[in-house]
Structures are given as structure tokens and as C-alpha cells.
Amino acid sequence: MDAFEQLGKTFFDWEAMAAVLPDLLTVGLPNTLLLALASGVIGTIVGMILAIMGISRNRVLRWIARIYTDIFRGLPAVVIILLIGLGLGPILRQVTGSTSPYPLGILALSLIASAYIGEIFRSGIQSVEKGQLEATRALGFSYGSSMRLVVIPQGVRRVLPALVNQFIALIKESSLIYFIGLVASERELFRVGNDAASNTGNLSPLIAAGVLYLCLTIPLTHLVNFIDHRLRVGRKQKPEPEELTTMSEGARA
């Protein structure tokens, strides 16, 4: 009984959770969202550029995309975050006077995200039937316009579920930013929860932080499932008028 009580106290100390909640909501949550959103947007833009380079007919562009992707997808996130954050930090401070770890943290997360997103986009674009490009070019569109108007929109649509998965990963990876060193107001969800856990010797604040992560990621997971289903089954369509008439004629006969 004692063991159970202690377990409950360690993980589900409601008072400890209530104590950390204001900080989680006013400091941790906005910072986590800022990190994930900023690097998500930058990662998507850079990822699209990488994907287009990756399918380019220019060999040099393909190589650059390949090497970039291999490096930033192949290294552990924490290594990239430390190298960028600690390595470039002093330079950034000299040039801009800023001591905020956020620009470099977002840069590191964006580098990682763009490498994954670039591969996601590339596979989607390459899965579009060759005939689509051919038909668009046959109408008189240039290669670039054909890609932009017809091929890429279809490719992106197909990989939306994978893209949302990448955003989920990004929300979780943003917790690694704490390695660069954050002052109190810069802490994101994990760091707020972890600090409170260390101070109180109780893991409940970390549970509270975890619950907030889940509040962000679970809806996205379901968004993935929804998009996936929609893409496979298609939007609900009204039945064909012809079919309707034949059906009703058949029923009358």
C-alpha cells in the first residue's frame, strides 16, 4: 500500500501539478509553439526547395540536396542543436548583440526538419505519373510552370499525412533546445516541467508538461488519420445522374 501511495505521489501529485501549471501555460507552451511553428514553416519552405533541387536535371543541384539531406537527417538532433547553438552562439552575439538562444535553436530545428520534409516532398512529387507533366507541357506550359501548377500540388497532397507526422516530431524535438541553455523566460514545456520536478523532487510537473505535449500532438495524429482517410476514400460525391436514372428505371421495371 505504501509503495502504491508513493508511486501516486511521485507521478500524480495534483498540488505540484497545479503549482507548475501557470508557468507551463504562460511560459512553456508559447515557447514550444514558437519553436515548433517557426521551424515548421522554415523547414517546409527549405524542404520544398531541397525537393525541387533533388529532382532537378542539374546534377550539381541534386548533389547539394543529397549531401544536405544525408547530413542533417543522419545526425542525432541533439548533436546538431549543440553544434549550431554553442558553436554559432558567440558569433551571433558579436554580430547582433543578441543573447537569445532562439534564433539558433530555430535554425538547428529547421535544418533537421527541412532534411526530412525535403525527402517527403521529393517522394510525393516523384510519385506523380509522368503523364501529368507530359500533358501539361503538351499544352504549352514551361517545365517550371508545369511543376508548379500541376505536378507539385498533386505530389504535396499525397504526402500531407507524412508532413503532419513531421510536425509532430518537431513539437517533441523542440524540447532538446534546453541543451543550449535557457534563461527562465525562455524555457519551453519540457524545461519548465523538468525544473519544477528537480526543485520539488517529484515527477508530477513533468507529467503535467507531458500532458500538454499530448494536447498538441494527439489532435495532429488524428488530423493525419483524417487526411489519410480522405485521400484514400476521397471526398463524398453525389452519385452520377446517369446512374441515378438507370437505377430508378431499373427499380420501376
Binding site: 505519373e129 507530359e134 503538351a138 498533386q154
Partner: peptide
Amino acid sequence: MVFQQFNLFPH
């Protein structure tokens, strides 16, 4: 040009 597989834009 008209193709064997139509190649209409499905989106």
C-alpha cells in the same frame, strides 16, 4: 495532344 491515358489533372 490527346493521350492514351487521358492525363487529366485529377486535382
